[in-house]
Computed example of a mutant assay.
Amino acid sequence: MSESIQLNLGALRSAMKLTLHTHHAARIWHGRQFSEGKNGIVGLSGFVSVMNKMKRGAEQDDPYSDWWMIRIEQKLTACKAHLTEIQENLDQFMADIPHALNIGDNLNIQPVTLPLFINAQLGFKAVYLLTQFDDLARRLLLAHHTALIGRRDMERWLDDGAHELRSLFAFAQQYKYSGATRDDFAANNARAREALESFGELPQDVLEGSRRSEFAPPIMRPRGTSDAHASSAAEDVDDTER
């Protein structure tokens, strides 16, 4: 009976929604479509799509996908540190609020709520950064409204925070699935040589698989996969979250 119940179990799901209070954060989520006279700007939703593909590539034993995950994780850490630095600078100004003055949180009366469909942990990391920026934007707007900082400082810090996130998203857009596996590199076959020519050398520990991102998925592609299967896997990666 217990075995029958276990066999009927489906996948776990959790409804997730993101609430944003500022136009500054909402614009970063959506990005900007390419139009005449204006370059497109990648939004967080586009970043999440790339992270889902990158995770799928790492599952397929593509060492370049693993290398990209490591680099994105490092970029996320640097971005968080920069946003935290801005917050700490703002804290010094906010400390000048008189104790006799009680100021509540600066919340939007009609915040935007967005559903989240994320399959990669690094995508969630970026969502956390966006909520951090949303909180920072709210506090900066409040600090300017209450004459704790001038418009120049407010706009400079808003621009700095937004630039950090957009730089992260633009960096991720350079990712491409190589189509090669560690078995290909061990065999030094044509697929490995083509990947090496297109994407360059890899750190040896990444190529060997001894260094992976903290959030790297288990490698699912079976050893000795045929060329046709590998080609199909590449198509699966490209189609993920399209």
Rank of each mutant, 00 (worst) to 15 (best):
M220F: 12
N188W: 06
H229T: 15
D227L: 11
S198K: 14
P217Y: 10
F199R: 02
A228T: 03
A190N: 09
I219Y: 04
I219S: 02
S226C: 11
R193A: 02
Q204E: 15
S210F: 10
P218M: 06
A216E: 03
I219L: 01
G200D: 11
F199A: 10
R211I: 14
R221G: 00
F215N: 14
P217W: 04
F199Y: 14
R193F: 00
G200M: 06
E214G: 12
A186M: 00
P222K: 15
D205W: 15
A216T: 02
N189G: 03
N189E: 02
R211A: 08
A187H: 04
S198W: 02
H229V: 12
R211P: 09
R223H: 09
E197D: 13
R221M: 00
A216W: 01
E194Q: 14
S210E: 06
A186H: 02
H229L: 12
R211G: 08
T225R: 04
I219W: 01
R221Q: 00
S213H: 07
V206C: 10
R221H: 00
R191T: 08
T225W: 02
T225M: 03
S226E: 15
P203M: 02
T225A: 13
S198Y: 04
T225S: 08
E214K: 08
G224C: 05
E201I: 05
G209P: 09
A190Q: 15
L196Q: 13
E214N: 06
F215C: 05
P222M: 13
E197V: 15
R223S: 11
A190S: 13
P217D: 15
H229N: 10
P222I: 14
A186C: 00
P218L: 07
E208K: 09
R191P: 06
D205H: 13
L196W: 11
R193K: 14
R212G: 11
Q204S: 07
R211K: 13
H229F: 13
E194D: 12
R193I: 00
S198V: 04
Q204P: 04
N188R: 08
P217K: 05
M220V: 11
S198F: 05
S226M: 08
